[in-house]
Design a protein around this nucleic acid. Structure first.
Lengths: 195, 195
DNA sequence: AATGTGTGCAAGCACATACTTGCATTTTGT
DNA sequence: ACAAAATGCAAGTATGTGCTTGCACACATT
């Protein structure tokens, strides 16, 4: 069992697409198979259960930890430039995972538990990195961050809120591009944290 | 049909509680009735369908438009004070509606459409109010808001992200109280927008 | 006492869905 | 060309769920 990559991947991608729109509970195995262009039985022969299908899809298509490398390599200790880079990278990662995050956000009665845990790991990680960065900047006299942990949280939550708003198509902001928002918000933060 | 308030309310509140946790699809009418302490048949005799039950619950327990009054009456045209008041009021409203918002966020295959629309109205409204406020403050020379609309968006999304993070119990921030965050973040914004 | 209204209980219907089984057919690797 | 693995197809099982129906009981108002 489990050989041909094409069929498995088609199923996993179809599952991700459909579940991101309609939720885990609201997506049927028949739909997934149809969207993948294969028979429903093939789905079960490959993955056994609906849960295992989603787990496999998640493990295969969940990206993370690009942020750690960024903090190790690309930080230039210049407030505006660094925050801009961090903000842009954040949205890039989140957008890559947007469908998976949408599935987790919607939840579901039999949604595997470890998936929810895994999805929450990334934000916590960034929060730590950013907090340490601001503390270091303050020590270098390049930022007047009275409360680095809190300000890191504010930065994160602002971009998180922006991302979540874009997840739901009911919110209407077609004109405001995300890039423009990132620049303006980073400018705002750089001004607030300037020494 | 539809008479005794006690039973109807018990059902609507139970529906809200359960659906906020398990989603619309994941909550069964049998569960709702059991949680309300009544027979399942009673649910259908009162509301006819599961959808109408949620609609009734939503119309009965959805609060809004406290914000408009605030902008009309309590604004003092002092940046820090006003932003603090706005931030606190925002979280108060969102917390009152937290379960309903959680239901909408999770979605569901047969979730009534008008509910989603109604839930998205409030953020758009606040965004307009806040944007106009910043524009007026700039005109008065009390704020150096180069891009008021964008900065209003940043303020809103920051608090929205904070609220959403608190919705999911998987995120762990037991120590940081929300009040403390609001104050610190408003301080940050006031500094960034100071003339 | 009579009547109506709300509720409980038991049973059931219609339908959807996750998952299975047996067999024929195609594709693939050697 | 041959064998093995993968897939399609048809049918079916088991279970859950929204929703209905019929009947009995309790309570309140008149």
């Amino acid at each position: 069992m489990g050989g041909n990559l094409q069929t498995s991947d088609k199923l996993m991608l179809a599952a991700i697409d459909l579940m991101a729109e309609k939720g885990y509970d609201g997506t049927t195995t028949k739909e997934i198979a149809a969207a993948a262009g294969v028979n429903e039985v093939t789905l079960f022969r490959h993955f056994g259960t609906k849960q295992k299908l989603l787990e496999a899809a998640f493990n295969r298509y969940h990206y993370a930890d690009e942020m750690t490398k960024l903090f190790e390599q690309s930080i230039r200790w210049e407030l505006y430039e660094d925050l801009l880079l961090i903000g842009r990278t954040y949205h890039r990662i989140m957008n890559r995972n947007r469908k998976l995050l949408s599935i987790v956000q919607k939840g579901g009665s039999h949604l595997p538990a470890d998936i929810q845990r895994e999805a929450g790991r990334h934000p916590r990680h960034l929060r730590k990195l950013l907090s340490d960065y601001l503390t270091a900047m303050t020590a270098q006299g390049k930022a007047a961050a009275a409360n680095p942990a809190m300000q890191a949280l504010a930065f994160m939550w602002m971009h998180y809120g922006a991302f979540i708003s874009k997840l739901n198509p009911n919110d209407d902001d077609p004109e405001n591009s995300m890039d423009e928002f990132i620049e303006e918000s980073v400018r705002l933060f750089a001004r607030a944290l300037a020494p």
